[in-house]
Amino acid sequence: MATKSVKTAQRYAMVIDAKKCINCKACVVACKAENQVPLGVFRNWIDEETSGEYPHLRMSFDPEQCHHCADPSCVRVCPTGASWQREDGIVLVNEDDCIGCKYCIIACPYDARYHNPETHTVGKCTFCSHRVDRGELPACVETCPSKVRVFGDLNDPKSQLHQLLATRRYEVKNPQTGNGPQLYYLL
């Protein structure tokens, strides 16, 4: 687990049980509402994959968003320091400092960032840090009928997230990037 850079008490991460996802888009719409994300761009989305030949078809869904990497390339390339990482691991963009150069969009291996056509700054998933700071769950986590996402503190052994990672097999996406992604997909 890519948790070596964590020095503080908390390290937020997410476990995703993608098999339970029914592609209902509740998480996607809840994120839009919570974060006033403009139409046409998304902080989270569902990757769909269909395969096979009729009638032997398969379909899978993968919820996606910023992986809040332990060593985020987006932060590394940002020329103004607008992209930054909190001590608890949450990666954010400070809109006031963002000049809209889009370096970070290119540098992100997970395609998690978008250019906001209204503000001309870059946006992305914040793990709903404003909610988390109030002690609430991210909007996508809370609203999901399947409870596909489990949000929590990697360093808290009592958290459901910690317990899932201790007892279930999982993978991270594109580990070769060296970014240390913090979205853990259950197998």
Partner: peptide, 10 residues
Amino acid sequence: RGMLCARGNA
């Protein structure tokens, strides 16, 4: 069961 669907959110 503690959920609000896409329509409910919209």
